[in-house]
Nucleic acid binder design. Structure first.
Lengths: 231, 231
DNA sequence: CGCGGCTTTGATGTTCATCAAGTAAAGTGG
DNA sequence: CCACTTTACTTGATGAACATCAAAGCCGCG
């Protein structure tokens, strides 16, 4: 982890268009004074579940996994999330410790904002409140929907769904480098590592995908979509 | 469904202590003018997924199930929820149609508020914004946590978890009438009806519970907790 | 070069869904 | 109120889906 000691540039932040559009110049300046930006390398932990909440965090760039540890000690991945979706999504306002661990799947930049400043903004800026409420609702909705989708599918459907998720939601490309290990896919879809690998091999044998180590190329996207829906 | 044509009594509403405490008298009166209260009988549908959002709804009394229909036509139950947890939880601010169907498991009373009025309140009352944000976050958190909990358990663990949920979260009693059919439990935990029944029978044979039709009595709560945790 | 972690594949056993057949309970119409 | 119909529940038998175990290959790294 490394503190990015850059001058205050919230005015130019990519997020301004999306999240801060409802803030005036003074509020943006206040935001600048109450934020710190950190860089994390692939694999680094951003925070652990159970740690006291110190910041309202959002992901500026990179890719992270949100996860927790089960009773039996395994990892359970809640979601894999891109920039423009808050990292410390909800816990900030519904508890005093982070509910899930978060770690970087790719080199990532996280902006940490003082929760008290967010509270100030909520108190005085109604437009900001509605925006934040809407975004948090959407992020939660997506997590719930993903989980429900996965739950109703069998092994084949889950793998197909995950590949399509990486391809269309994360990388926007038919060919991409998996940001996760086979075991992490297993932790995400709730199946065993061996069966994840087996199913990927089956897809390869049937000509649906090509595998070069971590690189996946989807050759037959229609078939994959059918398997995802039916499974 | 029946419109409760009662005089405006928001001032005396049970919710005032919990949700409306941050509203002043004028705002409460405004709320009264912009709300309608409906009663639903056990089994009635409150709204269907996909219907246009007309109201911000919350449950005043009773018990409801939130569910959707899967590709294969089965019901998938998202959550079973009590009063003081909003019914139309999140969709209101993140879309223009209800994402899930909701129906009454017991006779229920639902308060429908004009979403525009909620928006007005959010615009001008910061305390209300923070309260609503916090509550919506908490409700979503709970759904996500329940789903993750269930996902990591096997059949026995899921049944035990559900029974403990009804006992401790809903009815606060060791003995209670199941508000759902065996099939609905199956839809909730994502397993087959036959196996739900079989597992309940097993629990009965082992002396963990007693079954009188829809009435369940938990005889050995420690054992049930062990099964829930380990499963 | 050798060690450890990730990946792969096959063999085996467990868990769970499905099918079928029967019983109890709850509506429904005469 | 009773016969009839329908729906919910129950149990056993079977097979499919999936986890687990084990052994071997691969790859990066000291």
């Amino acid at each position: 982890m490394k503190l990015n000691n850059i001058d205050c540039v919230c005015e130019n932040c990519d997020f301004r268009d999306i999240v801060h559009e409802c803030l005036d110049d003074d509020e943006i300046k206040g935001l600048c004074r109450n934020k710190k930006e950190f860089s994390y390398q692939k694999g680094e932990v951003i925070h652990h579940e159970g740690e006291k909440i110190t910041s309202f965090k959002y992901l500026k760039s990179g890719l992270v996994k949100v996860f927790r540890r089960t009773n039996s000690g395994d990892e359970q991945i809640v979601t894999i999330t891109r920039p423009f979706e808050f990292v410390s999504n909800m816990s900030v306002f519904s508890g005093n410790s982070y509910r899930y661990s978060v770690s970087a799947l790719e080199d990532s930049v996280v902006c940490n904002i003082d929760p008290d400043y967010i509270r100030d903004l909520l108190m005085k800026n109604g437009t900001f409140s509605i925006m934040l409420l809407t975004r948090i609702a959407e992020i939660n909705e997506r997590i719930i929907e993903q989980t429900l989708d996965l739950r109703q599918k069998n092994l084949i459907g889950r793998i197909a769904y995950s590949l399509l998720y990486f391809s269309s939601e994360i990388y926007n490309s038919r060919i991409f480098d998996l940001p996760v290990s086979r075991k992490e896919i297993a932790d995400y879809i709730g199946m065993s590592t061996a069966n994840v690998i087996r199913t990927l091999s089956d897809f390869r044998k049937e000509g649906i995908i090509r595998i070069y180590g971590k690189t996946i190329e989807i050759s037959d996207i229609q078939k994959l979509e059918i398997l995802s829906k039916r499974g």
